[in-house]
Amino acid sequence: MTPRSEEVLENIRERLRMENEPRERIDPRARKVWTISGAMGAAVVMAIALAYWFAIPALDAPAWTGWLALALALGYAVWGIYMAPLLRTRFWRYEVREKEMEIQHGILVIKRHLIPMVRVQFVDTEYGPLMRYFGLTTLYVSTAATRFAIPALPKERAEALRGEIATLARVSEEDV
């Protein structure tokens, strides 16, 4: 690769990142969780596509639709098992400061939310069976109008954060 094209690539990479990303990453085990749940979703989609493929003679549909269904299911599998978990773990960041917290997430559309501590109304933690197997917990932060999540934190970290945020989120009287 020529230095010039490398420069162009680097420029594109830089643009695709958000500026001043929040400091902390989520637990790398999150990717395993998403890969597994993605694989389960992909298996269901693949099963449906296969069922359609086998049913084509009975349905009297053109053969290419069967191949199309299989191709779509395969594409979905690649996306759900590899791409989406990769991008998700790549972009998911958070940072808790004294007066505010920041969460960034997304797969294609990257969203970053700034939540002042005084606006936080509740903090709760939640985990499903898969998350629990890996010792991970999702932390939810709710304001009066919105709810945000930091997924896949180690259990102890999530509980510590929950306490920390709850203490920092002083309820101010004059606000609704």
Binding site: I12, R15, M18, V109, I110, R112, H113, P116, R119, T146
Partner: peptide, 17 residues
């Protein structure tokens, strides 16, 4: 400012480019 509950910036890949 005191009535903004949270603020978000969003960008899809094309917007980022």
């Amino acid at each position: 400012r005191e009535h903004v509950q949270s603020l978000s910036l969003l960008a899809n890949p094309f917007q980022r480019l």
